[in-house]
Design a protein around this nucleic acid. Structure first.
Lengths: 340, 340
DNA sequence: TAGCGTTCCTAAACAGGTTTACTAAAGGTT
DNA sequence: AACCTTTAGTAAACCTGTTTAGGAACGCTA
């Protein structure tokens, strides 16, 4: 492997000092009074030989890595992997790379991962936080490390974040059920205090108040065995035969919920209407097709990376916290139309 | 933010030289004749103060990053994101981190990404290669950089790889169609020369020979507009009304193919039988459920990372190339059973 | 013409590890 | 006692950029 060209080689080839080369490379030619002719000569030569600075030497001196750590709940979840993909694309085009990992919504694993990221000295953190890591996140913030939360926030943590209108979206979904003649609407959600789940639940509860109906909620455990979750949801549906519609609060729950419905041989949307929070391109192809709340994946990605890059600017004022609230929209399909 | 402890601090606190600390940290205590008592003292002290070496300084000197670059076709594809997730998990537990990116099967983008990875000095590359990058991959290999290919190989590139029995799996799928009474079996695949796609196609063609049937193949363009792909597949099915079954060669094609079938109001599996290469947990929930070839995701992941870590060992013999061939299995569901 | 301000550029320090080359002391041999 | 070996440890070079401190040359003013 041929040895890489260093800044010293460049300097030597041009018969100047590496200091001068460094200044030019860092856009400080003007500030440091480098003549335009020399600047041009240096830039031309660098282009010619295809010089690429050594990231370690840069990082060693500057303390910057140009790496952003991204923590999603599960990289194999379609929602998170789509967001990750778009953030990656955007970040790369702006000179940053992303290191992903999956938290599995596990507090301890996430603490470990934050520790790993810290020792890897990532420049910033884009996180869909699991519960119970207020302290670790606040430690990051106290150390003036940029943190952007997305998908959910954490009470007691003040930092920039990008979330969607979970409450309204859930509320709209339930109102849509009501408009289509459903009256006994249940909800299956996670056994979780997390903000986004609470908001979805409240949206559901408040919508039911319009028809003076009582909420009927089943909470399942995130890490539960898949087969067990399915059984739980089946029992729930069996024990609440009055239900004519059900709202699944996540992707993951919906997979199991749809399987439960199938096992019980209930007919969608006649026996039971279905709406899922989080769309999936296969939902359109189900028989009947599945109504879903679609999150604005592109906007979530763009806003997250933009906030992060703002925070990475030298003169960023850490006391200013920006919250971006985006709209999710209900994609009406057959599963929520009784006459579908 | 409190300043980080350096190896110099440790040395100073113990009244010894940082050389000694470095030797102990790198497991060279014996080799460099450091006494056991001093070694223990150093290790204890390091544990106590929670010292973490600076990655840049290490990388600068050693040229190692402990980062493996992974290139998948599309991180938002369920197959690739599942593999990525498992590789990540495994790699982390063994001291390595993974940087993902998506190639979109685009030759130029991949060349750029390889360039980026090279300048980031990743230690190794795990790649699902797009076509047309023999040269870049061979350049990596010539420079003694470890490369593991997965999902597909490239003719003319000799390096460790992990693939599945595409030919047999496709062959079995078609034979299964035949056993279930289908006789006019079409295939929709990508307009691609890539090895894995060719193998799937040959498996299909050879199986048809058993019943002396002629292949009926439609090739669609990878980056084509989704709506356009759907139209193409619809035309194909319309123009070949004799077809009573269709084999979709990937996940991505199947999404569009299933939509085409739905648009044409064909009934699966009576009007047309369906088998998809690559399983998806929602396929089980389709009405009717979709028969699919399921790749051994966990084994693919484990073998890939294991091969990579072997290659990263100091004394690895680059002339030895290991190829791992894993079995995919047909998951029979309703869509391929005419009497389903 | 001494003094000052610019302009243009560089030597050397620095970041925090790893590795080489070397020393001091102890032990063993003849 | 002279010589060699081994043990235990260290000083300094090194990796490649960035940044600080400063020098030389020039023009301008008082």
């Amino acid at each position: 492997m041929k040895k890489k060209t260093t800044i010293g080689d460049i300097a030597q080839q041009l018969g100047i000092s590496k200091t001068t080369v460094s200044f030019v490379l860092n856009g400080k030619a003007r500030e440091k009074h480098i003549s335009e002719s020399l600047e041009k000569k240096i830039l031309d030569h660098i282009t010619k030989v295809g010089y690429q600075p050594n990231q370690f030497a840069q990082g060693l001196r500057s303390g910057k890595t140009k790496i952003i750590g991204m923590m999603v709940e599960d990289i194999s979840d379609p929602f998170f992997s789509s967001v990750a993909r778009l953030i990656e694309e955007n970040a790369y085009s702006r000179g940053y790379k992303i290191i992903y990992c999956s938290t599995e919504n596990d507090t301890q694993k996430t603490k470990d991962l934050i520790q790993i990221y810290r020792t890897r000295q990532v420049d910033g953190y884009i996180i869909a936080p699991p519960p119970g890591i207020e302290k670790e996140i606040n430690d990051l913030i106290d150390d003036k490390l940029p943190v952007v939360l997305f998908d959910r926030t954490i009470p007691g943590v003040e930092t920039s974040n990008v979330v969607v209108n979970n409450y309204e979206a859930a509320n709209d979904a339930i109102l849509h059920f009501i408009q289509n003649g459903y009256r006994n609407i249940g909800m299956v959600t996670l056994n979780s205090d997390q903000v986004q789940m609470q908001e979805r639940q409240e949206g559901y509860i408040d919508a039911l108040k319009r028809i003076k109906a009582e909420p009927v909620i089943k909470k399942i455990i995130y890490h539960d065995d898949k087969e067990n979750s399915i059984r739980e949801i089946q029992s729930f549906l069996t024990e609440n035969k009055q239900l004519d519609a059900v709202f699944f609060a996540t992707n993951y729950i919906a997979d199991n919920g749809l399987e439960s419905i199938r096992n019980l041989k209930l007919i969608i949307p006649n026996d039971i209407g279905v709406i899922v929070f989080d769309d999936h391109n296969l939902y359109r192809l189900f028989t009947p097709s599945i109504t879903a709340i679609s999150q604005p994946i592109r906007e979530i990605s763009e806003n997250s990376i933009n906030l992060m890059l703002e925070m990475l600017e030298d003169d960023y004022d850490f006391s200013s916290v920006k919250s971006v609230l985006l709209k999710s929209s209900l994609i009406v399909r057959e599963s929520s139309l009784a006459k579908g």
